[in-house]
Design a protein around this nucleic acid. Structure first.
Lengths: 350, 350
DNA sequence: CGTTGATCAGGAAACGTTTACCGGCACGAT
DNA sequence: ATCGTGCCGGTAAACGTTTCCTGATCAACG
């Protein structure tokens, strides 16, 4: 049905030269006679030849593929990393492959083996677990790894992440400065270092500000929207807190939803500058994670680590920043000016 | 620095057998003596052998990689397709590579050539352009292609998309049933078939309902948020329309933003069930595109097309559905119950 | 006991490319 | 005129795997 694809030999025959010359013309390495070069290029066009990447990689001893491995496609870093790393990869004639580990160590392990077998030139990794993820298959195979967002115990590879401890401190300071004094916080699973650091920083900053805290101010969810809603409902029911910091984006949305229509709601400080936070009423103040900058830094770092494998691994921490909106302002009544009403259709004339 | 990776020959030597036997054990095809098989497996473990995918693909004459090609990572289909196709790919021991065309025909062309060279086993494609995208490099190389979301003129490949004409009609009917009579619509660039079909369906349904329309009811934006905001501002300034249908998600958010704080705003019917539409006040009725179902159908279809390349291409159209919220309800006053106020911090005791 | 058939392991070729090596040719210098 | 040098093109090997084909061993059957 489909004619067999032309190989370099077909091109060579058509141009009346050897395969070596064709290769030289294609890769532009050595100098080739003008006339021959012209004939070769013509033959490439006329045969529709496209170099076989498998043969090439086999001979060259390495692919030019960069792998991006993340727990899931919903991870906010994922698409950002993808577009950043693609930009860099395209310039370097590399391609990008991806894999999702679905937060499963076994899948992650298997995935590493595949990447080793495929001789990828580098890996951007958001690991599943801080202690149980085992990088050694990759590192022993000499594959450069850059960790993104999550740290791995004892790994000496590059790391690019946000300074979550600092993010938590900034959150606490922001709320304290605005006069709030009875904080609560919705954290993630205690093994997850990112959210845990945010919680720690938050608590530390409140204590430094002279506020006594008992352990009941920390509630832990599973990062999903529903869990944020449930925990916020609990906070509302207890009625103790006057401000709540939510440490991830999905739970932030849930928390906001649980507060709708409540007059006695505490101030809300959410995480991630997602679209909804500026569209809702009242608009929601957020701790903005520098995802774009992080992704870009990670992609760059991998690029230079591939070019230069034997340098010392480095750690880059990027700072979050607070975007202040209405939800943490004192005494604001956004409901009187922040919403609109669909015009009554009855007024319409046809 | 890094020890060379073991090859199948190292394993063979260690186990005292030939490379052929090792290959047979690994691939589990032919039957091998129990004892030898045991020795081979032991040797694989002790050497840390991982098969070289390049050698394998070269010999087998094909990789097991599925490519996903989309204009940009922000495309709502992108992450959905990724996770669906990955699920299928993993079961089939395939991996997934991606490429973004950045809405650039030249990049898309180059990308196709790469995929041909890499002998990918199939491509899921959201094409850049309905008429200018040229699939022939892929099809001539015998690579199965499934188009997602966007149609290509004259291509006889599989297509999975949403029925946009129907989506537009549903939008019009929804608004008409609720008593609105002076419609407007914010469309995309007229070459973009998806939004254009929605606009056409919308206009057709209004006309069928006996409403006279002139051409001024259609405004065209560039799909970005800012453009939606600008066009909605224009509609508000003219004050003619009593309801507005916005044909893509980004412009929908912009349109909503432009309506905030306006008492005389028309009803809003947006596109895509994004998170913000249910969190804002008033919540926004939407035409929900079945992205998940579409992605899943596309991934399945590619799977079976790879398994079975010579069947007739098919077209699958999935229906949208309307999710009714507050923004298209008559006479609703959501501002009185849809928003909340951060508690005044002054009330707090330390 | 001999022959046939089945089963299974090994040798070697093949996939398509790059590149080390070699040889030939042209040109310049002595 | 002859030799040396340098440039450039071709030949062939090599990358690591799979698989065809062959040969050997063994069992069963005539």
């Amino acid at each position: 049905m489909v004619s067999p694809r032309p190989t370099i030999l077909d091109v060579a025959r058509t141009a009346g030269v050897s395969s070596a010359t064709v290769s030289r013309v294609i890769n532009g390495a050595a100098s080739v006679d003008k006339e021959l070069s012209r004939r070769v290029r013509a033959a490439v066009r006329s045969t529709g030849y496209v170099p076989n990447a498998m043969g090439r990689s086999l001979r060259r001893g390495g692919t030019s593929q960069i792998a991006v491995v993340a727990p899931d496609a919903a991870n906010p870093y994922f698409t950002q990393i993808i577009s950043e790393v693609e930009r860099i990869a395209r310039g370097d004639h590399q391609s990008v492959t991806i894999a999702h580990t679905e937060d499963d160590l076994e899948i992650e392990r298997e995935c590493f083996a595949q990447l080793v077998g495929r001789h990828v030139s580098g890996v951007l990794l958001v690991p599943v677990h801080s202690t149980l993820t085992d990088l050694s298959p990759l590192t022993e195979a000499g594959i450069p790894v850059v960790l993104v967002d999550r740290w791995i115990e004892g790994a000496n590879t590059d790391l690019v992440a946000t300074d979550n401890l600092d993010a938590g401190r900034q959150a606490a300071r922001h709320l304290h400065e605005r006069g709030y004094r009875r904080p609560a916080v919705i954290g993630g699973p205690s093994q997850l270092r990112t959210t845990e650091d945010r919680v720690s920083g938050y608590l530390a900053a409140w204590r430094e500000a002279g506020i006594e805290l008992d352990e009941t101010v920390v509630l832990r969810g599973d990062l999903q929207l529903e869990s944020g809603a449930a925990l916020m409902a609990q906070i509302l029911a207890e009625g103790d807190a006057d401000c709540v910091y939510v440490t991830n984006n999905r739970m932030s949305a849930g928390a906001f939803e649980a507060m709708r229509g409540r007059d006695d709601a505490p101030a809300l400080l959410a995480t991630d500058d997602d679209l909804w936070t500026r569209l809702v009423t009242p608009s929601v103040s957020v701790v903005h994670q520098p995802v774009r900058a992080t992704s870009r830094a990670a992609a760059r770092m991998l690029g230079q680590r591939i070019a230069n494998p034997d340098e010392e691994p480095s750690t880059t921490l990027l700072r979050s920043k607070i975007i202040e909106r209405e939800s943490t302002q004192r005494g604001r009544r956004p409901r009187t000016d922040g919403s609109w009403t669909p015009r009554d259709a009855g007024h319409a004339s046809s």
